[in-house]
Deep mutational scan, measured.
Amino acid sequence: MSYSVTLTGPGPWGFRLQGGKDFNMPLTISRITPGSKAAQSQLSQGDLVVAIDGVNTDTMTHLEAQNKIKSASYNLSLTLQKS
């Protein structure tokens, strides 16, 4: 079951990613910084990142996902799936 979260910026957003197409692993939330915008939302460590700002992550490399997140200036919309 997927869910959506919109973090209001600017960054830093307070989470780290792992995985990506180049690692043959789905993009997942690997760490959440305590007290951060991510920590105050529904994000959980281990959640799968399905889309970033409406763009499906199935074919994204780790770097492409990082760049997509960094390019979000004020709002960052994520679609996630609980692990």
Score class of each variant (00 low, 15 high):
residue 1 M to E: 08
residue 3 Y to V: 07
residue 4 S to F: 13
residue 5 V to A: 05
residue 5 V to T: 04
residue 5 V to I: 11
residue 6 T to R: 09
residue 7 L to G: 00
residue 8 T to N: 06
residue 9 G to H: 06
residue 11 G to L: 05
residue 12 P to H: 05
residue 14 G to W: 00
residue 14 G to D: 04
residue 14 G to T: 00
residue 15 F to K: 01
residue 18 Q to M: 14
residue 18 Q to G: 12
residue 19 G to L: 01
residue 19 G to S: 02
residue 20 G to Y: 02
residue 20 G to L: 01
residue 20 G to C: 02
residue 21 K to A: 08
residue 21 K to E: 07
residue 23 F to G: 08
residue 23 F to H: 08
residue 24 N to Q: 08
residue 24 N to W: 05
residue 24 N to L: 09
residue 25 M to N: 09
residue 26 P to F: 01
residue 27 L to D: 00
residue 27 L to R: 01
residue 30 S to Q: 08
residue 31 R to W: 13
residue 32 I to F: 01
residue 32 I to M: 05
residue 33 T to P: 03
residue 36 S to L: 06
residue 36 S to V: 02
residue 37 K to P: 15
residue 37 K to H: 10
residue 38 A to K: 01
residue 38 A to D: 02
residue 39 A to N: 08
residue 39 A to K: 04
residue 40 Q to I: 08
residue 41 S to A: 11
residue 42 Q to W: 06
residue 42 Q to P: 08
residue 44 S to A: 12
residue 46 G to S: 05
residue 46 G to A: 04
residue 46 G to H: 06
residue 46 G to D: 06
residue 47 D to K: 00
residue 48 L to Y: 07
residue 48 L to A: 11
residue 49 V to C: 07
residue 50 V to E: 11
residue 50 V to Q: 11
residue 50 V to L: 14
residue 50 V to W: 05
residue 53 D to A: 06
residue 53 D to G: 08
residue 53 D to F: 05
residue 53 D to R: 04
residue 53 D to P: 00
residue 53 D to H: 05
residue 54 G to K: 06
residue 55 V to I: 12
residue 56 N to F: 10
residue 57 T to R: 00
residue 58 D to P: 03
residue 58 D to C: 10
residue 58 D to K: 10
residue 59 T to F: 09
residue 59 T to R: 09
residue 60 M to R: 00
residue 62 H to T: 07
residue 62 H to L: 15
residue 62 H to S: 11
residue 63 L to M: 14
residue 64 E to I: 05
residue 64 E to L: 03
residue 65 A to E: 01
residue 67 N to L: 08
residue 67 N to E: 14
residue 67 N to W: 06
residue 69 I to C: 11
residue 69 I to D: 01
residue 69 I to L: 10
residue 69 I to H: 00
residue 70 K to G: 11
residue 71 S to R: 14
residue 72 A to Y: 09
residue 72 A to H: 12
residue 73 S to I: 09
residue 73 S to V: 14
residue 73 S to Y: 12
residue 74 Y to V: 15
residue 75 N to R: 14
residue 76 L to K: 03
residue 76 L to H: 03
residue 76 L to F: 04
residue 76 L to A: 03
residue 77 S to F: 11
residue 80 L to I: 09
residue 80 L to D: 00
residue 81 Q to H: 07
residue 81 Q to V: 15
